[in-house]
Simulated assay, not measured.
Amino acid sequence: METRLVPYETLSLVQKQQLNTLQVHPEQLAYSGDIDCALNSLLVNPNPAAIKGFALLADEHPVAFLLLKRPPCLPHWADEHSATLHALQVDRQQQGRGFGKACLQALPAAALQAWPQIKGLELSVDADNVAAMTMYLSAGWVDSGEAYRGRIGYERRLSWVFDRPL
C-alpha cells in the first residue's frame, strides 16, 4: 500500500468528503479532538503562512490528518523558529496499520517544503497518552524533559530538530 502526506488544499473534492468521515476512538477525542474541530481550526484561519493541514493518503484514500502551525498561531511554549504539530488523527478503522508512523516519517519533509526556514518541529503530548508518547519517541522525537499543566493533565514537550544547517 502506497502512502503519502499531502497538503489539505491539494485534496480532491471526493478526498475532502472522505476526510470529513474520519473518526478516532472515543477515548482519543480528549487528546486529538475530532476531524470537525481540526478542519475548523484550519478553515477559520486560512493563512498558509501560519497554519497548514495535511492528510495521509493510503492508495489515494485519506486515512489520517494533522495540523502544523507557525507564528502567530504557535502555542506559548514553542520556539518561534519551529512548526508545531497538532490534532494528529488516524481513522479508528485504520489504526494499528502503521499510518501514524507513516505520518511522522513524512512530516519533516512536508514541513520543510511548506516552510523551508524552520529549524525543527515541536509537539506537546499528554503524559498519560502512553500510546502517543511511545509512537513519538520510537519515531525519533526527543523529550525535552519539561512537563507543564495542560488542559487535561501534565503534558510533555517533544521536538524534532532537522539535521541540516539553515
Score class of each variant (00 low, 15 high):
N20L: 05
D59M: 14
K52C: 08
P48F: 07
S32V: 13
A55N: 07
L67D: 03
A49Y: 04
T21A: 05
T21G: 00
N47V: 10
C37I: 01
E60V: 10
D59N: 15
E60C: 12
S41E: 10
D59T: 15
A50E: 12
H25A: 14
I51S: 03
P62M: 12
H25G: 04
D36T: 01
L68Q: 12
A50M: 09
P48A: 08
A50T: 04
P26Q: 10
H61L: 14
R70Q: 15
I51E: 02
V63E: 06
Y31N: 01
E27R: 12
A64T: 11
L57D: 04
A49M: 05
F65Q: 08
P48D: 05
G53A: 04
K52M: 07
A58Y: 13
K52R: 15
P62Q: 09
L43D: 07
H25I: 04
V63D: 05
A55M: 08
N45T: 09
P46H: 14
A50P: 05
L29G: 01
S32N: 08
A49L: 11
A55V: 06
G53V: 07
S32I: 01
A50Y: 09
V24R: 03
G53P: 06
P46R: 15
N47R: 15
A50Q: 12
E27L: 11
S32T: 14
Q28T: 02
A38W: 03
D34R: 00
E60I: 05
D36P: 00
F65V: 08
P46M: 12
G53K: 03
L67H: 03
A49F: 03
L66K: 05
G33P: 02
Y31I: 01
P48K: 09
C37M: 02
A55F: 07
Y31E: 01
H61W: 13
L57K: 08
L39F: 00
L56W: 06
L39T: 01
I51C: 09
H25W: 12
A55L: 08
C37S: 00
L57N: 05
A58D: 14
P26H: 10
E60R: 14
L22R: 06
